[in-house]
Design a protein around this nucleic acid. Structure first.
Lengths: 110, 110
DNA sequence: TCCTTCCATCGTATTTTTACGATGGAAAGT
DNA sequence: ACTTTCCATCGTAAAAATACGATGGAAGGA
């Protein structure tokens, strides 16, 4: 291994990189899900409009309903949001626990 | 706007969502770049092997040299890492400033 | 100068993502 | 029971990401 340390500082002592394979998969999935402008916009919208339904997002976003649903599914599967049935509609919220976990995990390994 | 707040809690007072369009683009780009298992592995490797060269990563990762270079470019353009020429080789390091910015921004808006 | 090492970029094939319209299921109102 | 509303899913087209081998440029050693 060639090691050249003249070009950058050593990592801080806090960086342990102690992460299980499962946690890493989960984390990468969360990164991937938010690495899309529309999905980021959805999460932003949910911050200011907690409990809104799919139709609200369809009205707000410049894309078709089917596409919004698809993005919501990605965010749900990545754990960023939760959806619950409210009569005929579907109510979406941020998953606060997941967000806390994300922040803590990123803070721990990076 | 239909608002159903029975299904989730209100957002914390800390969540301002105050982010410029440029910052949002940068943030989404950083999310996107790390939303790939290989690139996450690269960043992890750089934490424990700061200042390593491309060849080290090529030896470590199960993919071709051209692909490693491509991933390094993505991480560089997203701001996660910096590369400097060290003779014929190329030395890579995490971009500490960018990581701090990422952590702070995520903490502020989510 | 010539050769070797190191690695970024090009061209391209394959896979994945993103987007849409169409369809249908579930729930509420008539 | 019928209709309407709401939205997830299906099928598919287009765009983007990912992977590879091949090529060539830049730097150092022989």
């Amino acid at each position: 291994m060639t090691k050249l340390t003249t070009c950058c500082v050593q990592p801080a002592a806090c960086c342990s990189l102690d992460i299980s394979a499962e946690a890493q998969d989960r984390l990468v999935g969360m990164f991937k899900a938010l690495g899309n402008p529309i999905r980021f916009e959805i999460l932003k919208y949910l911050v200011t409009h907690p409990g809104c339904i799919t139709g609200d997002l369809v009205d707000y976003l410049p894309i078709a309903q089917a596409t919004v649903s698809q993005h919501l599914k990605v965010l749900r599967e990545a754990g960023w949001i939760t959806g619950s049935t409210e009569g005929p509609a579907r109510c979406y919220c941020m998953n606060t626990e997941a967000i806390v976990w994300f922040r803590e995990t990123v803070g721990r390994i990076l």
